[in-house]
Amino acid sequence: MTRTIPVPANNRGLRRSAKKRSRALKPWYTNTSLVAGMIVIGLLIFVAVFAPILTPYDPIQQDLRHALQDPSAAHWFGTDKYGRDILTRLLWGTRVDLRIGFLSVIIPFVFGSILGALAGYFGGWFDTLVMRIVDVFFAFPFLVMVIVLVFILGSGEASIYLAIAAVSWVAYTKIVRGEVIVAKELDYVVGARLSGMSHARVLFRHIGPNVLSQSIIYGMSDIVMNIMGVVTLGYLGLGIAPPTAEWGSMILDGQEFITSHWLQATLPGLLVVVTSLGVSWLGDGLSEQLSPERRK
């Protein structure tokens, strides 16, 4: 270099406010899947909550004089063989199935995720032990295990929760463990450790939020699985005890009249499909929303 180069005064400090604003952060309502899922699930929750107000009929009280009626102004979808209004039972069924579907995810989600995080983070013999147990549980199909457990524990909502929790924690453990093993080698996690932070802080503040999204998204699909499980149990006559309105047992009740009163068996099935779709959309939307690029 033969020539001297003028250095402008502002060149050394470089203290410009230079945040990249180019990648505008999109607000949540532009996320189509999320909005669609929220609408569907929101509607279902609404009818579940307000079922007692929305229909004048009782879901359990039999009225044999009006048994097996066709759809009419009084009974939009007709009545079943005990004279109960189908619509009423559908709405009350939403209460049961949605409640079990969502609640049954919580225990396995929390327990499985924590166990997986600990196993992945600390490794060693603890990891080996946990993963062997997980392998054992994974060897059996989900529904078969749940049915067997409910059969042993006896029917009723409590045993359904127990059975599902006992079987489905393994998936969360496996997912979170894998994510933690990758995340703990990331520079920012190593850096956090090197700054003298405790294991608990590193694990729950720095690793946790970054690995949990996978688990949450899986949880959404798990809700669908669990609803299917409850419905299947109901259909097999194992789940919720009979007079209670529940989609599975409604399908069971309705199937003997499938040729004459087909709405009885198909409507609960349709609701299962709609619920699954709503939950899946919600899951897709969440997975997009939870990626760090999108957050505000």
């Binding site: 520079d187 920012y188 850096g191 720095h206 970054n210 760090p292």
Partner: peptide, 12 residues
């Protein structure tokens, strides 16, 4: 660290 894209926690 070498890679400034992996050395900062994206969520904090």
């Amino acid at each position: 660290f070498q890679d400034p894209y992996s050395s900062l926690n994206p969520r904090i």
